[in-house]
């Protein structure tokens, strides 16, 4: 039989052990392409992103089934060449994958002029992001609002940081 004085200590230890763990997960650079000809206004740039999330969680001593919640915390778009983000008035980013529908993830409107890298405003509402990431491969879509027509393709680089909550 447990001594009454040990009970609170054991409860505390149990609670501490079962606290969910928070992990930071970086996407690395994702190269998005809008295939020309492009027109003044919104043009769709996209890329397939194989997240590597399962391998990452395994490295951290977890499995994909431990993932309880995921939240995008930062989103950055950079120019992929010397033109930077010149001629792009705004950027809006969505993700889709698996059985999950397309989700609005981040926006920056307007873009500062002559910038080469911009931080986007991340969506407050990110429903079912953990399930979306569970798909393994996502389609990342960036709507580039261009100020002029262009025959050439346009390339930008997206980088994303996520906070993952995993079961102990």
């Amino acid at each position: 039989m447990l001594r009454p004085s040990l009970l609170p200590l054991l409860l505390l230890a149990f609670t501490a052990c079962s606290e969910p763990e928070r992990l930071r997960f970086e996407s690395g650079p994702i190269h998005l392409t809008a295939a020309g000809p492009l027109f003044e206004g919104s043009n769709t740039a996209q890329a397939e992103w194989t997240t590597g999330l399962e391998a990452f969680l395994t490295q951290q001593g977890h499995s994909l089934s431990d993932l309880r919640e995921a939240r995008l915390t930062t989103a950055t778009i950079a120019g992929a060449d010397s033109t930077g983000l010149q001629g792009i008035r705004s950027v809006s980013v969505q993700w889709m994958g698996g059985q999950q529908g397309m989700q609005q993830m981040a926006v920056r409107n307007p873009l500062p002029t002559d910038s080469s890298t911009v931080q986007l405003t991340v969506a407050d509402e990110q429903p079912k992001l953990a399930e979306l990431l569970g798909a393994g491969t996502l389609t990342v879509v960036a709507d580039l609002d261009l100020d002029a027509d262009s025959d050439a393709d346009r390339h930008v680089i997206g980088s994303f940081t996520l906070e993952l909550t995993v079961a102990p």
């Binding site: 809006s92 969505q94 609005q104 926006v107 920056r108 969506a123 407050d124």
Partner: peptide
Amino acid sequence: NPDESQRTVPLRGYRLLKD
């Protein structure tokens, strides 16, 4: 937009039909 943080998304270019 019900999500206030995304109210600056341009309407021209907005995807209103999805999935």
